[in-house]
Structure formats: structure tokens, C-alpha cells
């Protein structure tokens, strides 16, 4: 309305009216801008990986708010009252699922009350059981509610493609006017993920199969191991809150010696103290720091970057 009013004034003539005209045009654009801002889809994310997918698919139509940020240990994270308010103001909440966010059930009543749609990635992936071999039996009664199912599904690219499609559909449902944008962006992302999958296979083809043994802090890379033919041994269980037992560490040291494992890996949110102790006793080197529970920083700040960083570190250390 204001835009049309401004154009009508343009015909009036005179320097004063021209100046008023320009001011009105300026305010008209501001008003239109605020309408566009109000029209964006507000998406809160408890997962750094899903936040990245949401940005890729949503583009300018979506405002993504990362509740759990890169570098934060999601295993020990609990939402603050401020986080709950931010989530309540959103239209969509993204969560990894499969027990990764132990507090999710506590959030559900608030989501229903505020009309926030919950999108759980774990609902559309092919879940696997914990596959690590070095892990001691651990207590499943801790607050993060992991079952035997491995919740770290993003280390399998086909799973990420499935979740990207799920996010596209959720955005299209919440904002039907943006369907064309969401579909085009999701198609582009899917093609890039397929290219990433081939890149990963080509990199790993240079790694002898006998060397495909991953020793990590906690059991987060099971999906990667299954997809790419790795055996996995971990100090802790599936959660960073699981404590390593001395028996488990002893078994791990034996395994590393028998298999002549060249390198073991720390994680971006972990204290690698126990791993350093293991390297001292086995002679294996510390191969680098992997992003396990979500995205990292720098080149690993995007999903594609994270996968490339992890694979490059693994190949370089185990070759």
C-alpha cells in the first residue's frame, strides 16, 4: 500500500514533494523489508548438522537458530530457560532423536502448547546398534537416555540425504509458498551429498583394509564404520558421560598392539587424556581430532566440510 502511495506522489512535482517522495519510498522499502523478515520461517535446532542442512535447504526464506552450538558437548547439554523461550518462538524445532537429546520428552508439552513442529532426524534414518568392540558394558540409566541404538546417524551420508528430504518436506508444509525454493535447494544439496559420498569412497580406497581400525574416545563413528568397512574400538561407551573402566582400557591396549594400529583419534569435544595414556603404552600415534558429536569449527563448520576433514584425518593417519 505504501509503495503505491509513494509512486502516486511522484507525479505531484516540486523539490519539496520530490524530497518527501524519496523519504516515503525509503520507508516503503523498510516496511516491505519488515514484511519479508516477518515472513521467514523460524527454525530452532538442537543439532549442528541439522542446522546446516536447514540453512542449505531454507536459504533466505529460513532463519536458523542454533540452540546447541558447535563445540558444545550435546551429551551433557540441558536447555536453559532462555533456550526454551527461543524454541517456543520458533515454528520448527530440529532434533537428532534416537535418544541423543535425553531432555526431548520434557520439551514436548511446551512444543505442543506453542504450536512448534518437531522434526526428528532419527525418525527417517536406518538406525544401527552400537558396533564398537572395545567398549565395556555401560550403565544405560544415565540422564541421556541412550538405548543400544547408536544416535550418531549423521556419519552415514545416506542417512543425511534422508534427513535432508525430511527437512525439505517440513519446510514445504510450514511455508507452502517456498516449495519451489526448498525443492531446488534440496535437489542441489542431494547431488552434492552424492558427490561427497563418492569422494569419501575414493579417499578410503587408498587405505588398506587391514588398516581400517578406528580407535576413538567414545562410540560415535559406528555408522561411518558400517558404511566404510571399519572396525571400531572405543574407550568410552556411546555417550561421553560413560566412564572408561580399567578393564576396557587394558583390553583396548591389547587390541591396538595385536592389530598394530597406527593411530588413535581424539574428538573435538573430548579431553584426550586417556587416549594419550594409551598412545604412551602402545606406541600408536594420536592421529588427530575428529568431529564426532556434530560440526566443528573452521573447515569442519559445515556438514560437507566436517566429513571431508574427518576422512582426510583418518586416511592420513592410518595409511
Amino acid at each position: 500500500m505504501q509503495a503505491f502511495f509513494a509512486i502516486d506522489l511522484h507525479n505531484v512535482g516540486g523539490p519539496i514533494s520530490r524530497a518527501m517522495n524519496r523519504i516515503l519510498i525509503f520507508f516503503s522499502f523498510l516496511t516491505l523489508g519488515s514484511f519479508v523478515q516477518a515472513g521467514t520461517l523460524r527454525v530452532a535446532s538442537l543439532s549442528t548438522v541439522m542446522a546446516d542442512l536447514a540453512r542449505e535447504i531454507g536459504g533466505d526464506r529460513v532463519e536458523v537458530i542454533e540452540i546447541v552450538k558447535a563445540g558444545v558437548d550435546p551429551h551433557i547439554y540441558e536447555p536453559t530457560p532462555g533456550d526454551r523461550k527461543t524454541i517456543a518462538k520458533s515454528q520448527i524445532l530440529l532434533a537428532s532423536g534416537l535418544g541423543f537429546e535425553g531432555y526431548l520428552d520434557n520439551l514436548r508439552p511446551g512444543l505442543e502448547k506453542n504450536g512448534v513442529r518437531l522434526v526428528v532426524g532419527g525418525d527417517v534414518v536406518n538406525p544401527i546398534e552400537s558396533v564398537c568392540k572395545g567398549e565395556a558394558p555401560h550403565d544405560h540409566s544415565h540422564s541421556h537416555n541412550h538405548g543400544a541404538t547408536d544416535p550418531h546417524w549423521w556419519h552415514s551420508i545416506p542417512n543425511v540425504q534422508a534427513v535432508a528430504a525430511q527437512i525439505r518436506d517440513a519446510f514445504a508444509k510450514a511455508d507452502p509458498e517456498g516449495i519451489a525454493t526448498y525443492e531446488a535447494n534440496a535437489r542441489d544439496l542431494n547431488a552434492r551429498l552424492a558427490a561427497l559420498s563418492k569422494w569419501v569412497r575414493l579417499q578410503l580406497a587408498t587405505l588398506p583394509k587391514a588398516n581400517r581400525v578406528l580407535v576413538t574416545s567414545h562410540d560415535a563413528l559406528g555408522y561411518f564404520a558400517v558404511d566404510n568397512g571399519f572396525e571400531i574400538f572405543t574407550v568410552q561407551g556411546i555417550s561421553t558421560t560413560d566412564q572408561p573402566s580399567s578393564q576396557n582400557v587394558k583390553r583396548l591396549i591389547e587390541e591396538i598392539k595385536v592389530r598394530k594400529v597406527k593411530a588413535i583419534f581424539a574428538e573435538n569435544i573430548e579431553n584426550p587424556k586417556v587416549l594419550q595414556q594409551i598412545t604412551n603404552e602402545t606406541g600408536a600415534k594420536l592421529g588427530g581430532v575428529l568431529c564426532a558429536d556434530g560440526l566443528g569449527s573452521g573447515p569442519a563448520a559445515t556438514y560437507e566440510g566436517m566429513m571431508k576433514t574427518n576422512v582426510s584425518i583418518i586416511v592420513e593417519a592410518l595409511k
Binding site: K133, S246, Q247, K250, R251, E254, E255, K257, R259
Partner: peptide
């Protein structure tokens, strides 16, 4: 007291 048994054998002999 730690178990006096020997460390468990490595899995899957090569």
C-alpha cells in the same frame, strides 16, 4: 581388587 585373570584375548585372530 583387580581381577587376577590375564587380560582378555584380542578379538578376531588375524
Amino acid at each position: 581388587t583387580p581381577s587376577p585373570s590375564a587380560p582378555p584375548p584380542a578379538s578376531a585372530p588375524i
